[in-house]
């Protein structure tokens, strides 16, 4: 095995790219869960975003329009989840799982004509002199706009939850919907907005896969990224900063195992490919042994205003 063939600068640069889809989806899901809703349909919303974004970008030639369409498309799917769980009071777990199946099926149907086509992709953002800094420039300042958007999103979500009244109300609804209702807050409306936001974020994450990271359409191309995003929210104990750490950690392991494979590590390839998932499971076990801290108290509980 030749570890010198692994370039740390490229490793970190590609880590940021590979972590962005999960980071976007996990940020959205964290906001949803903070409002007390458990949406297990992240995978379905991501892949719906991936194909919607891909199709629109190919047809219009504009990746920006593709991203907007991806956010809208996945938010539509999330809206279906919201109507089912918030108004018709269906079970959140079952509905979320159903959403994933619908998303996977729908995307492969829409995606059939697009297989084998290459999409227009996002250009690298020109950050002027920053990109010319040796090592750091290549590592941190040579990415496309969505990488920076995702980082700004983390900061924005953190600040909104911590400092604004809207963030306080969102946390209150997730903490105790009965108490929030008694104070006159619109529990269902707050949750619906959070669900739409979560859908849009998952859609952006999916589109980043199909428009930047790969960039082409393959059936089932999210390959479990949505589930990882869900796990990262728990891993992060529902905190924005830790979601960032979790997503980059996972992105790092993914990239590292690819590099190790290329370097000819004496470990079965199957095991290396599975390593990010194994490590996720391990981390989740450690967290739950320590006791789950910071989960919103009303998470996953249905709310009905009648009493």
């Amino acid at each position: 095995m030749d570890l010198t063939s692994i370039n740390p600068v490229l490793l970190i640069a590609s880590l940021m790219v590979s972590a962005t889809p999960i980071l976007l989806a996990a940020m959205g899901e964290m906001v949803v869960e903070k409002s007390g809703v458990l949406n297990l349909g992240v995978e379905g919303m991501m892949i719906t975003g991936a194909i919607t974004g891909f199709a629109i970008a190919v047809n219009t030639g504009s990746p920006a329009l593709g991203f907007i369409a991806a956010a809208a498309g996945a938010a539509m799917l999330a809206l279906a989840f919201g109507i089912l769980t918030q108004f018709l009071l269906s079970n959140q777990v079952a509905t979320g799982l159903g959403l994933t199946l619908v998303g996977l099926g729908l995307s492969s149907l829409i995606g059939k004509p697009y297989e084998g086509i290459k999409s227009p992709t996002l250009p690298r953002l020109d950050l002027g002199p920053l990109s010319d800094i040796p090592v750091l420039g290549r590592m941190l300042f040579s990415h496309d706009i969505m990488v920076y958007f995702s980082l700004a999103l983390v900061a924005a979500v953190w600040a909104v939850l911590k400092f604004t009244r809207a963030g306080l109300v969102l946390r209150a609804v997730g903490e105790s919907h009965d108490a929030a209702h008694a104070l006159g807050y619109k529990v269902v409306r707050v949750r619906l907005l959070a669900i739409l936001f979560g859908g849009a974020c998952a859609g952006l994450g999916g589109a980043y896969l199909s428009l930047v990271r790969v960039p082409q359409w393959t059936e089932g191309m999210t390959a479990g990224a949505g589930w990882i995003a869900l796990a990262i929210v728990v891993f992060a104990s529902w905190r924005a900063g830790r979601v960032l750490v979790g997503a980059y950690l996972f992105g790092g392991i993914t990239v590292l195992q690819l590099n190790l494979q290329a370097a000819g590590a004496q470990v079965p390839v199957a095991l290396l490919s599975a390593s990010p998932y194994l490590i996720t499971i391990l981390v989740l076990v450690i967290i739950s042994v320590r006791g789950v801290h910071g989960a919103p108290a009303s998470l996953g509980r249905p709310f009905h205003a009648s009493h």
């Binding site: 009244r165 306080l168 109300v169 209150a172 903490e175 929030a180 006159g184 910071g294 108290a297």
Partner: peptide
């Protein structure tokens, strides 16, 4: 009701365990 000057202390406290006293009060 609150705008008209009617306030209520509930039997089962309508409080949020994970939030601070000040945050709870701000919500009301």
């Amino acid at each position: 009701a609150r705008a008209s000057g009617v306030a209520m202390v509930f039997q089962h406290f309508s409080l949020f365990d994970a939030l601070s006293v000040a945050e709870n009060i701000a919500l009301g």
